[in-house]
Amino acid sequence: MEKTIVRQIVLEAISRLQNERTDRSLFHLIQGKRSATSLQDAHFYGLEAIFGMVPLKKDRFEQLLQELEHAGWIEREQTLMITDAGRAQITSPFLLDDLGGELRGYPMQLWKRISLLIQSIVCLDQNTFFIPIQQDSGIKEWVRQQIRQIPERSVWITAVYQELNKALHQLTERDAILISYRLSGQKTGLSFPQLSERLGTDLLSLQLEFVMAWRRCLRALPEDGLILSLGNDIDHFKMTQSAKKTWELLKQGYSVQQIAERRRLKKSTMEDHLVEIAMYATAFPLEQFVTAIQYEEVVRVSDQLQTFSLKRIKQELTQEMDYFQIRIVLARKVDRP
């Protein structure tokens, strides 16, 4: 079976899940479901980058798993497992790390803004009729505001062109093609089906390649440049809104008990919030929830067994700890970028 990009990415994800999660967990991950479990999976198993970044429908996802299983690359029982043959297909560095899921919606949101702004300014400057390539009314409104703030269109066009041109020079030929041929202005961008035909790649792989190329392009753009400054206000916090509120109160010095009462949160919800905060916040009052000895032991067991399975860790512990405490430790244990 041919190793397409989408197959490879799914294979990489399965290998990172260490035979500890189900196909449903993986589906929720790639869909970007903001539930405590999926967020935790993304964090523990090093799959932040894939979070919400693979546009697969349920039936297509199922079909993909069947193909991988059929090729003998994975096995599906209770959990998803990669076989030796499957592992042999994976080459380092992993592709999936360039998908940009850790930035949540930021890269694509910025793409929508910048692609519509370029099209609008270039066409307005040349006085040519155009169909806006983005239909999202929020994006269109944002672009309308921006257009008013640009005094000299031709100056802006040249500056953005130069910035992009410079960034694309730092990328591979193929990445540069993917980005330049999706842009519209005096010429209109190609649709994904058109590009996939020209480049001889299947449609879904091509869409993922584009996402990765754009992510790399964002890294190559100057941080204080015109393009990146257009995305300064885009929210890319990983924390859910609700957990963020809890965090704010925690920072103001309220106790967990007080916050739960004040926000009328159930114990389990409160715990989910705390795990989220432990995962994403730079500072966290860990000592409120576990002792140093408890922390050491969970880390040791997890490392020894090479696992994030709460159940297996709990069985090995010598001291009494509940699942929430183990989750908190694991959340802090994982290196934060």
């Binding site: 370029i118 270039v122 040349q126 066009i157 040249t158 953005v160 062109y161 992009l164 041109n165 694309l168 030929e173 540069a176 093609i177 980005i179 330049s180 041929y181 842009l183 519209s184 202005g185 005096q186 010429k187 961008g189 020209r198 480049l199």
Partner: peptide
Amino acid sequence: QLDWKRRLEEVFFSS
């Protein structure tokens, strides 16, 4: 052939 340098220029200044 697909040529990104030419394309980028055409997008921004085809005239």
